[in-house]
Design a binder for these strands. Structure first.
Ligand SMILES: [Mn+2]
Ligand SMILES: [Mn+2]
Length: 553
DNA sequence: CTATTAACTG
DNA sequence: TTCACACAATCTC
DNA sequence: GATTGTGTGTCTCAGTTAATAGGG
C-alpha cells in the first residue's frame, strides 16, 4: 500500500505548531487524539493504520484531505479548489493518491462527473443547447461516457476513497452522525453555546470493534433508505435489498431505537407497495411502536382475526407505551366482534366544551383564549414549552451529571442516553434527591433555584428549555400557581419516558385569580386529540390536575 | 436581467 | 431532520 | 368516523458566492 517513495517520515506532524489558518486541521487532530485516548484498543485496524499514516503525512496533504472531506462531493474538481494556505495542492494530491486515499479521474458513472459541470460547460463541451432548458432536460438529451468527459475538460476530477477509515473515527468521536467537524467552528464562533458537563472521566459509548461496525452499518443503511425515499422513481426492490444489511438486532444497544425505526419505515413502505408478508416480517423484527399496531392492523385487514386477537391481547396486557395502550383499547372490541366474543362496554366519550368567538382567521388557540375570557385569570399559550422548561431547569444538574457513556465530546446538547431506556436508573440517586426537593423548603427558596438555574444557563443549547423573552416570568407564575405535588407527579411521568412524554401537553394555561390554574387543550374543526394528548389528559384526571378540552367552532 | 437556491466558509 | 398541526382524499360502518 | 397521506411552518450558525430558474 505504501511505496518507499512515500514512506512515512520519521516525525509525525505536531498539531500544536499549526497556525490559525489550519484551524480545520487542528480540529481534526483533536478528533484523532480524543478517539485514540478513549477507544484505542477497539478501533478497526484499518482506522488505526489510517491515523498512524495520516500523522506522518506532510502538512499540505493532511490539510487537503480534511478540506476535501468537508466538501459535498463525491466528485470534486481540482480547478475548483482555492486554498491559499495549502502551498502545493498538486503535490498534496499526488501524496494522497499514492496512499490510495484519493483517486484521480476515478472510474465512476458519468452522472457523478456531470454533476460537477455547469450547464454552460456541458453545452460548450458537448454541443448540446442550454437555452430554455432546465438542467434535467438538458442532461436527458446528452449521452457521454466518463472517458469523453475526462478527455474534454482540462481539470482533474477527484474522489476521496478513505471514507471507510475516516467514518469510524468520526462515529467514535461524536457517537452519532448528526454532527460533523463544523461543530468545532460553530462552537468556537459562539453560535452555539453548549452546557457544561464532566468530560474528565469519559466512559465509552462503544464497547467493541463490532459495536462500531454495527453502528456504521446501521447509519449507512439509514442513509441509503433516505436516498430511496427521496427518489419517487426508485423501485421497491432497491429498498428490499437493504433489509439484510440492517444489523442483526442488537438488544440493549444504544442504537436499538434507530434500528427499529428504520425497520418500521421500510415495513411501512412495503405496506404501501402491497407487500403485506414482507411488512409483517419486518414489523416482527421491531420492538418499537407502531410495529405491533401495524401487525394487528394487517392481520385484521387480511381477516386473520385469531392472530390479530393474540397480538392485540399482548399489547393490552403489556403496552410498550401510551400509543399501544390507546390502540389496544379501541381496536380490541372490533376484533372481539369478528370472533363472536362479547366486547367490553365502550368508555364514555369525554365531555367537550364548545366555544364560539375570536377572529376566524386567527389560530384556534388564540380564538379560544379570546372566547374563554379573562374573568378568572389570564391565559397563556404555552403548549409543551412550560412543563419541559420547568422540568428541564429543575433537573438541569441531573441531566448534565456524569453517567456511563453519557458524555464523550465537548459539543453535546444532551447526554447520549437521554432518550434511551435506563436513563433514570443510571441517575436514580440524584433524581430522587431532586424530586424530594420539590416538596421541601419554602416556595420562595424553590423559586430561587429555578431562577438561578435560568440565569446561569440562559442561551445554552439543551433539549428542554427554550430561552424565550419573558420565559422566566412565566415559570415563576407556574411555580406559584401549580402545587408541588402536581409538579412532582408530572415529573415522575415525564422522567419515565422523556422521548414520548415531552409532548402532548395542553395548549393553554390560566393563572387563576384564586391562586390556582387550569390547563386547556384547544381543538379546531378537523383536529382531534392525539394519543399523547389523551394520555396526559387521562393522567391529569387521575391525579386531580385541572385540565379540559375545548372545541372552537 | 433578477430572484432563489445550493455550496462553501470560518 | 423533526416535530406539531391543518386539511384533503379515501374507505368503512 | 377512521385512516392515510400531504402540505406547511418551524427550526436549522450566519454570511458570501456562484449557478440556476424563470420572467421580460
Ligand atoms: Mn397544540
Ligand atoms: Mn390543540
Amino acid at each position: 500500500m505504501y511505496s518507499l517513495k512515500t514512506a512515512p517520515k520519521k516525525e509525525p506532524l505536531r498539531p500544536e505548531t499549526l497556525s490559525g489558518q489550519f484551524y480545520y486541521l487542528q480540529n481534526f487532530h483533536q478528533v484523532l487524539d480524543s478517539v485514540e485516548a478513549l477507544y484505542e484498543d477497539i478501533l478497526p485496524p484499518s482506522s488505526r493504520e489510517f491515523i498512524e499514516h495520516f500523522r506522518h503525512l506532510p502538512l499540505d496533504a493532511q490539510a487537503l484531505l480534511i478540506r476535501l472531506h468537508s466538501r459535498k462531493g463525491p466528485i470534486i474538481r481540482e480547478d475548483k479548489l482555492s486554498y491559499p494556505e495549502i502551498g502545493d495542492v498538486a503535490e498534496a494530491i499526488r501524496l494522497l493518491a499514492d496512499v490510495r486515499w484519493l483517486q484521480v479521474n476515478p472510474p465512476v458513472t458519468e452522472d457523478y462527473l456531470l454533476a460537477t459541470l455547469t450547464k454552460a460547460e456541458i453545452s460548450a463541451g458537448f454541443g448540446v443547447p442550454q437555452h430554455g432548458l432546465s438542467r434535467p432536460a438538458m442532461l436527458a438529451t446528452l449521452h457521454v461516457t466518463p472517458a469523453e468527459i475526462y478527455a474534454t475538460f482540462a481539470t482533474r476530477f477527484l474522489l476521496l476513497t478513505c471514507h471507510e477509515y475516516l467514518q469510524p473515527l468520526l462515529d467514535a468521536f461524536f457517537g452519532s452522525r448528526d454532527q460533523d467537524l463544523s461543530a468545532f467552528i460553530v462552537s468556537e464562533l459562539g453560535h452555539i453555546r453548549y452546557p457544561d458537563y464532566p468530560l474528565e472521566r469519559r466512559s465509552r459509548r462503544f464497547h467493541s470493534t463490532g459495536d462500531l461496525q454495527e453502528y456504521a452499518d446501521l447509519e449507512d443503511t439509514y442513509s441509503r433508505y433516505r436516498e430511496w425515499r427521496a427518489d419517487p422513481e426508485a423501485p421497491l426492490e432497491d429498498l428490499l435489498e437493504l433489509v439484510p444489511l440492517i444489523p442483526a438486532i442488537a438488544r440493549n444497544r444504544p442504537w436499538r431505537y434507530r434500528c427499529d425505526r428504520l425497520i418500521n419505515r421500510i415495513g411501512r413502505a412495503c405496506e404501501r407497495a402491497g407487500e403485506v408478508e414482507r411488512a409483517l416480517e419486518l414489523y416482527a423484527m421491531s420492538e418499537l411502536p407502531p410495529a405491533r399496531e401495524r401487525r394487528v392492523r394487517l392481520f385484521a385487514a387480511t381477516h386473520d382475526w385469531y392472530s390479530a386477537y393474540t397480538l392485540c391481547l399482548q399489547m393490552q396486557e403489556a403496552p410498550a407505551d401510551y400509543s399501544e395502550r390507546h390502540f389496544a383499547r379501541f381496536f380490541m372490541p372490533r376484533i372481539l366482534k369478528q370472533l363472536g366474543l362479547p366486547a367490553a362496554s365502550r368508555r364514555p366519550a369525554p365531555r367537550i366544551q364548545r366555544l364560539e368567538g375570536g377572529k376566524p382567521e386567527d389560530r384556534p388557540e388564540l380564538r379560544a383564549m379570546q372566547a374563554l375570557g379573562t374573568d378568572n385569570g389570564d391565559w397563556h399559550y404555552v403548549e409543551n414549552w412550560l412543563f419541559n422548561a420547568w422540568l428541564g431547569l429543575w433537573f438541569w444538574d441531573v441531566i448534565y451529571s456524569d453517567a456511563p457513556g453519557a458524555f464523550t465530546h465537548p459539543f453535546q446538547i444532551a447526554p447520549h442516553d437521554l432518550y434511551e431506556p435506563g436513563f433514570r436508573q443510571r441517575r436514580e440517586k440524584l433524581i430522587r434527591q431532586r424530586l424530594a426537593m420539590l416538596e421541601e423548603g419554602s416556595l420562595s427558596e424553590r423559586q430561587q433555584v429555578l431562577l438561578e438555574t435560568w440565569q446561569a444557563h440562559e442561551g445554552k443549547a439543551n433539549p428542554f428549555v427554550g430561552w424565550y423573552e419573558g420565559g422566566a416570568a412565566l415559570l415563576e407564575k407556574a411555580h406559584a400557581h401549580i402545587p408541588a405535588r402536581h409538579i412532582r407527579v408530572i415529573a415522575e411521568r415525564w422522567l419515565s419516558d422523556l422521548r414520548n412524554h415531552r409532548s402532548g401537553f395542553p395548549d393553554l394555561i390560566q393563572w387563576r385569580h384564586d391562586g390556582g390554574y387550569e390547563l386547556v387543550e384547544v381543538k379546531g374543526p378537523g383536529d382531534q386529540l392525539r394519543p399523547n394528548q389523551t394520555a396526559w389528559l387521562q393522567f391529569f384526571g387521575e391525579e386531580g390536575i385541572p385540565a379540559r378540552v375545548v372545541y372552537v367552532a
